[in-house]
Design a protein around this nucleic acid. Structure first.
Lengths: 390, 390
DNA sequence: GTGAAAGCGCTAACAT
DNA sequence: ATGTTAGCGCTTTCAC
C-alpha cells in the first residue's frame, strides 16, 4: 500500500496538504483537493494513517516514532515534540492488531457468561461484577472479551480462545471443586484469576467472599433476636460455596449450644420455586413445631421462602424471620425488605485484575494470591420485628 | 523465528518426531527427546505451530494450506487431505491476530456497558440481552468486546475502538433522540445495529419494542377491568422510549373517551425511590379522588409504586391496580406478582446480529433495517382483582 | 492446482 | 539519539 508521502509526491504537495485534502479535517483549495484526490485514486490509495506517515511528516524514522509512543528508548526532547505534533496533526492511532501480532499479546481478557439457568434465573450480582471487572481492566489498558461457556465441556471455549491467540488471560466466576476450567488453565500455565475457590490443593489466584463467616453472621443475628428454631435452605452437597455457607450456620448454632435438626437443614437448588416448595414443607407444622427463622443461601431463594410464608398466612419477620445472601438490589425494595449479606464486588474485582496483571506481566503467579472478603450483614425488615411468642 | 522443520533438521529427526518431542502429545524415545530439546534450546525455539509447519509437514506451500483452511481456492482432494491431516496431527490453530492484520478485520463486535445508575439500578433485561447477543454473534464466528461508555462523551470510546482497529461493528442499546453515538457512527459509516430508535430522519439498522403499543395494551387491560381513573408514571420529557410509551397510554384513554388529567400524567426518573415518592403524592387524596390504577413505565418503577400503595395501607390490585414493563424475572416472584409487558429479547438480539453481519459483510446497510417487536402483556395479580367500588 | 513472494502495521535488535 | 531492517503469521496476487 502506498503511503501519504507517495500521494503527496505524486500530487506535488506537502504531506500535510495531502492529508488535509483526503481527510477534510482542514479546508484545502478545491484545485489542490481534486489534484490530491486524483493522485490517490490513481494509486488506489485509501487514507489510513500509519506509523510511516507520522515518521515521514516528523522527518524521523518509524523506529523513533515507536520509541516516542511507547517510551521504549530515550528520544531527545525536540524530536519527541516533532513526533507528537505529527501524531496530533494526523490524528494517528496505532493499529493494535499489528502491535499484538508483533508482541504476541492481545491486551484482552476473556470472561464467560454462564449458560442461562432455568426458571428465570438472574443474578444482578454478576452484572455488577462484570461491570466492575471491565472498569478495572480498562484502567490497565485491557479489554474484556465475553463468550459463552459450553454446558458439556466447560473448558473447551477457553482452550480455543488461547490457541487462537484471542486473549492474554481469563477471569473466572462460579468456580467449584474439581473445576475443569481451572484444572486445564493450570496445566497450560495460562494466566487467570478466579472469583471463588476450587480444590485446596490447587494454588491459583482467587478472591472469595467468606460465605461461612457471612452465614454465621446472619445466623448469629437471628440468635441474638431470640430465635432458636432456625432452619436453613442450602444447596445440594458437592457445591463448595454451598457447603461453606452451610457450615457458617452450623458454626453459629453449635457455638450457641443448639442441637442441629437434620429436618431443618434442607438442600435444594438455587431457585425461587424450589425454595418455595421446601419452605411449604418446613412450615406446615404447628406453630410450636415449625422454625421461627429461615436462613436462605441466596436472595433468590429468600424470595421463594418469603412467598411461601405469606401464602401460608404467616407474617415475615413476625412469625418467621428470613435472611438472604448477595444484597441483590431488589432486596431493598421488596416488601418486607430483606436482611442479607453484601459482597464487596468492586474491591474484589479490582483485586482480581491486579493479580491477573501481575501474572500476565511477570509471567508468574502473584505471590499474594488468596484474598478473602468478609460480607457485610445488612439488617432489614425481614428479620427485624421482635419475636412473636414461642 | 525458527520453524519446526529447522529444529527437525538440526536434530536430524522428522518434523513429526520433533513435534512429538516438544509437545509431549506422543511418547518419544528419551534419547531423541533430549536431542530435539537440545536443538530447540540451541536455536531458542519455543513450540508454536504455524502455517509454515503445517505446510512443511504436508509438503505443500503455505498458500495451499491457507487455501484449504479458508476454502479460498480450489485444491485437489488428496492435497486437501494431506493438509487436514497435518493440521490435526500438529493441533494447528490459526493465529487470529495475524489473520486480522492481513484482512483488516477483527471479527469482534463492541458492546458498551452503560455507566452504573444511582440508587441500585439494575436491569436483568440487559443481562439477558447481552447474553443473547453473544450467542447469536458466536454463531456467526464473531465475539463480543465489552467496554465502558464515558458519561460525558458517549461516543469517545466508540471512536477509539474504531481507530485502533479493535472491532468490526457495534451493538448499541439505550438509544435516544440525537444519540451522539449513532450520529458519529453514521458519519463514519461504521457498521452497527441498535436496540432502540433515534431520530426518524436517521436511517440505520435497529430493532425496537413498540412501547406505545405495549403501554396501550396495558392501559386497555386496565380499562377492561373497569378502571377509568388511571394514572401513569412516565419519564421526563425528551426520552424517546419514555415519550413513546406515554403515548400508548394517551392512545388508550382517548379511544375510551376518557379525559386526560394532567396531574395523573407524572414524569420522573426510572428509580424505585422516585416512583415511590410520586405515588405517595398521587394517592394521598380521598378514595373517590385518587386513581384506581397506575401504569408504570418499568417494572422497577412499578416496585416503587407497589411499596407506596402498601405503605399507605391500601391493597394492590384491590384498591389500586399496577402494571409494569420489561417482565423482569422478579415480576413473577414479588407479592403480589406484577402484570407487565415482556420483550422478545432472543428474537430481537438475533435480528440485530443478522443486520450487523449484513452491513459488515456487504459493506452496505441491510435493506430491511427497521424491525419492530410487539411486547406481550403478561397479566398477573397486581392488576387482576376485580375493582373494589368507586 | 500449486507455489513464490509481497506485504498488513508494528516492534526491537542491531548499527551508527 | 536515531535509523535500518528483519520479521510477527497470515492472505492473496500473480506466475507456472
Amino acid at each position: 500500500m502506498a503511503t501519504l508521502k507517495d500521494i503527496a509526491e505524486h500530487a506535488k504537495v506537502s504531506i500535510l496538504t495531502a492529508y488535509y485534502a483526503l481527510s477534510e479535517t482542514q479546508p484545502v483549495e478545491p484545485a489542490i483537493q481534486s489534484q490530491v484526490r486524483a493522485a490517490a485514486a490513481a494509486i488506489g490509495y485509501k487514507l489510513n494513517v500509519t506509523l510511516r506517515d507520522v515518521a515521514a511528516l516528523a522527518n524521523v524514522s518509524v523506529a523513533t516514532v515507536s520509541y516516542v509512543l511507547n517510551n521504549s528508548a530515550p528520544v531527545s526532547q525536540q524530536t519527541s515534540r516533532r513526533v507528537m505534533d505529527a501524531v496530533t496533526v494526523l490524528g494517528y492511532r496505532p493499529n493494535v492488531t499489528a502491535k499484538n501480532l508483533k508482541t504476541s499479546k492481545t491486551r484482552m481478557i476473556g470472561y464467560a457468561w454462564h449458560p442461562a439457568y432455568p426458571e428465570g434465573y438472574f443474578n444482578a450480582l454478576l452484572n455488577h461484577f462484570i461491570y466492575a471487572v471491565t472498569m478495572s481492566a480498562e484502567a490497565c489498558g485491557y479489554r474484556i472479551l465475553t463468550f459463552v461457556e459450553a454446558t458439556d465441556n466447560r473448558s473447551a471455549a477457553y482452550e480455543e480462545l488461547i490457541y487462537t491467540n484471542h486473549v492474554d488471560g481469563f477471569i473466572l466466576s462460579n468456580t467449584n471443586s474439581d473445576d475443569a476450567r481451572i484444572r486445564r488453565l493450570m496445566e497450560m500455565r495460562f494466566p487467570f484469576a478466579a472469583f471463588g475457590r476450587a480444590n485446596d490443593s490447587w494454588s491459583f489466584p482467587y478472591v472469595d467472599v467468606d460465605g461461612r463467616a457471612g452465614i454465621r453472621l446472619a445466623t448469629e443475628h437471628l440468635l441474638s433476636q431470640g430465635h432458636e428454631r432456625i432452619a436453613i435452605l442450602g444447596w445440594p452437597e458437592g457445591s463448595l460455596t454451598g457447603d461453606e455457607r452451610l457450615h457458617g450456620y452450623i458454626d453459629a448454632m453449635t457455638a450457641a449450644h443448639i442441637n442441629l435438626r437434620s429436618a431443618w437443614i434442607v438442600r435444594t437448588l438455587n431457585s425461587v420455586r424450589l425454595a418455595y416448595q421446601e419452605t411449604e414443607k418446613l412450615i406446615k407444622q404447628s406453630e410450636d413445631e415449625r422454625p421461627t427463622a429461615i436462613v436462605a443461601l441466596t436472595d433468590l431463594m429468600a424470595i421463594g421462602v418469603m412467598r411461601a410464608i405469606e401464602d401460608a398466612g404467616l407474617r415475615i419477620g413476625h412469625d418467621i424471620a428470613v435472611t438472604g445472601f448477595d444484597d441483590d438490589p431488589m432486596a431493598t425494595f421488596i416488601r418486607p425488605s430483606l436482611t442479607t449479606l453484601r459482597q464487596p464486588i468492586d474491591a474484589l474485582a479490582g483485586q482480581m485484575i491486579d493479580m491477573l496483571m501481575t501474572w500476565i506481566n511477570e509471567e508468574t503467579q502473584p505471590s499474594d494470591r488468596h484474598f478473602m472478603f468478609i460480607p457485610e450483614l445488612i439488617v432489614r425488615e425481614s428479620s427485624q420485628t421482635a419475636l412473636h411468642s414461642s
